[in-house]
Nucleic acid binder design. Structure first.
Lengths: 350, 350
DNA sequence: CCGTATTATGGTAACGATACCACAGAAACA
DNA sequence: TGTTTCTGTGGTATCGTTACCATAATACGG
């Protein structure tokens, strides 16, 4: 009964348009119009200096006349270069990551690479499945957040044989390149800073993601060792927000923490803590000192201005992009472990 | 001189491995091992219910034995479904957009679609070139921020013949579907709210992106019409931050704006303004009332708590994803203009 | 037990680009 | 002028997958 259709199909094929034709303009159409071979059009687009000026002119006219634009899927398949870079972050809802990615995109903009985004929600399992999914797009490189990955994740990444940049942390054993800062050192540095300022009654309001936990651990250890101080601890979830900061400090205060200094594991938490302290009428920093982490844009402008730990997200995002591009282009990357450092910005809350 | 190489190549080809072989496991390898045809493996992956259980079992063993994972570039090329959705935002550094994208990704996670990210930096030109680049990846759908696009952009998008969702605004003439809220109505509603509260001395600290300018215009018009009030105006850049909020309010106060109410075009600006007011010892809201926009997580917890205009980024992100998926799957989308509305949350700063 | 509907599988030809090699003609050199 | 290098271009095969059609095998109803 569908004989008619079949013969139609056959006719269509004879006429040169296949059953699966999409109607969209292809490189071939441009080539025909410009009266050159497809490969020359391809060269005109990708290596124009290898094509004679007159030919180039004819081709670019044909391109604009047909409204052609390339199909990067086909290009990626044939050239084994997808011109895609995957970026995997815990969550974009945390503005420090959003900012890093923003700088990362900026740096990539004019390189012909585009960013494939994935969120893990701080879960290693989800990271693993995300990595598998993302690798099936054959990205030319991948940006990861953190240095802690499941065995399978590492295996997949190594097997993919593409540049990998890990960020937000340091490790002596990166998969490929790591760009970040030491969370141990931050824990220690903040502890020592507070000791030097003379604080002896110290608490911490901390998120519970891996990196925050490391900072908290070293912070607590350092204070125990150097000042024989027992730290009052209040852990909140991985995802932090203003409310959790208020609640975290409230928890400390309601459980006997009087006056002293509190290290908050993010500026968001610190800002919440600040509000809670003010709501309770505590004098800052005389009765309660607060130090945050991240140097978010608002940190310099809270009232009083927030003391915080600063690290440069612009440098991290940009250098991550540069490292990936360098690796992709086969340039040697001399350092595979880049410490961007951090600093403590003393403002008015300590 | 390279005859030897040629004959090597020929030999290699005879042996079945071509010059361009990549070494990676393909569907064919799996098919051979499972002793079925490639197309059956493809079906086993994409429509497992169409394959006999025993065959399925053999294939999935072959897959895990070989460590195969699919090449989505090839898949996309052959099936004309890239399973890619492009998301274009002004900047991820603005947390309201980052959040929207986060919810958007969440909703898409288990659908097999992934997000290709692009930032326009609030520039229409950059949006245009970004759209062209992105479309060359043949995404199955695209999310845009705002409803104002260049002619070329519109032409490209319509030509691409894929679902398009515009967000963050409303328009009677969407390209395809629009999900957002009315910036005119916000300008009017905030003006009326302040009038009803009895304020007669009113200022505005506003960003200068399209949507903020529309809100500002209607705000000013409404106050002129209904209260015969001349609004003190302080415009800042497109990208807002805390500092600009302080400076914006300072500008107003230094130019003769005494006591009254100020509408800030984002909570970020409002927070900065709040700090500036406090630094100057102004009583809030008695001497200076402030209303923001966005209901950022911290807005409920500033001290005093910030009155603001709220709209639901979760709903916007999620519904945008759902609309795109529905369109892609050919389901009818009844409404092509979805107003998610907004509300004024009265807290302590007004 | 036969004809029909359904299920499971395969062969072949795309999808739209680039890699690889070959080669003609121009330019450079002896 | 003859030889060699360089420049510009094209032919063909391929990248790894799926669409389309065909067909064998099985189930089903009377």
């Amino acid at each position: 009964m569908n004989y008619t259709e079949n013969s139609n199909d056959a006719k269509r094929r004879e006429l040169g348009s296949s059953t699966r034709a999409t109607g969209s303009v292809t490189l071939n159409d441009v080539a025909k119009l410009a009266d050159v071979s497809p490969i020359t059009v391809s060269r005109a687009i990708n290596q124009p200096n290898k094509v004679a000026p007159k030919t180039l002119e004819r081709i670019s006219q044909a391109i604009s006349r047909t409204g052609y634009f390339p199909n990067q899927l086909a290009s990626g398949l044939a050239s084994r270069r997808s011109h895609l870079i995957a970026a995997i972050v815990p969550t974009m809802a945390n503005s420090v990551h959003a900012e890093t990615i923003s700088f990362f995109c900026d740096r990539l903009r004019d390189s012909g690479y585009q960013v494939l985004l994935g969120e893990t929600g701080y879960s290693e399992d989800q990271e693993e499945s995300l990595i598998a999914t993302v690798l099936s797009r054959r990205p030319d490189g991948i940006l990861l957040t953190g240095t802690s990955h499941s065995k399978t994740s590492r295996r997949l990444l190594i097997g993919a044989d593409i540049p990998v940049v890990e960020t937000w942390d340091l490790t002596p054993t990166p998969i490929d390149v790591v760009i970040g800062f030491s969370h141990q050192h931050i824990g220690q540095a903040v502890a020592e800073y507070l000791l030097n300022k003379g604080y002896r009654h110290i608490g911490i309001v901390s998120a519970s993601d891996n990196r925050a936990k490391i900072r908290a651990r070293v912070f607590i250890e350092t204070l125990a060792r150097h000042g024989n101080i027992e730290v009052a601890v209040s852990f909140v979830s991985e995802l932090t927000n203003f409310r959790l900061g208020r609640e975290g400090l409230a928890h400390l205060l309601d459980n006997g923490f009087g006056e002293g200094a509190v290290f908050c594991s993010s500026d968001t938490l610190a800002q919440g803590a600040l509000a809670e302290a003010q709501a309770r009428g505590l004098l800052i920093p005389d009765q309660l000192a607060i130090i945050g982490l991240g140097d978010q844009p608002y940190a310099a402008h809270t009232y009083p201005a927030l003391t915080t730990v600063r690290f440069d997200r612009e440098i991290m995002g940009r250098r991550a992009a540069e490292a990936l591009l360098a690796r992709i282009n086969g340039e040697p990357v001399t350092e595979n472990c880049i410490d961007i450092g951090f600093s403590i910005l003393e403002r008015e809350t300590t």
